[in-house]
Design a protein around this nucleic acid. Structure first.
Lengths: 131, 131
DNA sequence: CAGTATCCCGGTCGATACTG
DNA sequence: CAGTATCGACCGGGATACTG
């Protein structure tokens, strides 16, 4: 019988314990840590942008994926979509306050990658040539 | 002709510009932002741990995925694997210095989720009931 | 204990084409 | 311009079984 280690560990804190398998925040974490979401969020932190502007700023992102991410992030309350009723309509996306608050740690992470990326790549190369 | 926007933008900085499609650091970024790697890294930051200990601490991670992640992270120089030649062998995993340095921004991100996770979930619910 | 091997499914992604 | 629709390829990840 598998003794349930988790049940013994702070059952009330499920909501903020990502290590717990039932933690609902895992879905939130996945949302902001995927392949593209961090790039969208950090780019948008520079200021409001229109759809194709955003696409051009994020190398190789497809329109499909971009529109999916934007819809999800809007649903999450991290991004706000604004339509100006002109012809053709101008749509722009901007971060909400919550969106800006998450951009900060994401930028830290991107900075880490910029600072240590080469070291990682070097470690990989070293490791591979040994094998 | 598609004018290449990227080419005009700091071609020398490719290595630290994650927005550029050819940036080699994207692979590094993907590594540390995946579904499981952040959890492994942050948990390991608490101290060296053995395989099953780690598995038990990270809810619902499968052994397959855990072993894959550990192998990758070891290759990246973020995790160090130590074998004590006893019978049966004791294997333990620990963060390297670089590993600790990345755990820091990852913890920030997890803290953000702990702080704002409920708000996101609420925003989703609100958005959904409107639709 | 500490993993690896295998199988397979579901979701993600990219490319392309199309709409208002 | 601002997307959506569709389709196929790919891959991460779960379940299960097995090895040293």
């Amino acid at each position: 019988m598998g003794e349930n280690v988790e049940a013994k560990r702070l059952p009330r804190d499920r909501h903020s314990d990502l290590f717990h398998s039932e933690c609902p925040a895992r879905a939130v974490f996945d949302r902001i840590t995927g392949r593209w979401a961090p790039l969208v969020l950090v780019k948008l932190a520079e200021g409001p942008m229109r759809f194709y502007e955003l696409r051009d700023q994020i190398g190789r992102i497809s329109e499909k994926v971009l529109s999916e991410k934007l819809r999800l992030l809007t649903r999450d309350g991290l991004v706000e979509r604004t339509v100006e009723p002109t012809i053709p309509p101008r749509v722009s996306y901007a971060l909400t306050e919550t969106g800006h608050s998450v951009a900060k740690p994401l930028r830290q992470l991107m900075r880490w990658v910029a600072d240590h990326g080469d070291a990682i790549l070097a470690a990989q190369a070293l490791h591979d040539e040994r094998s």
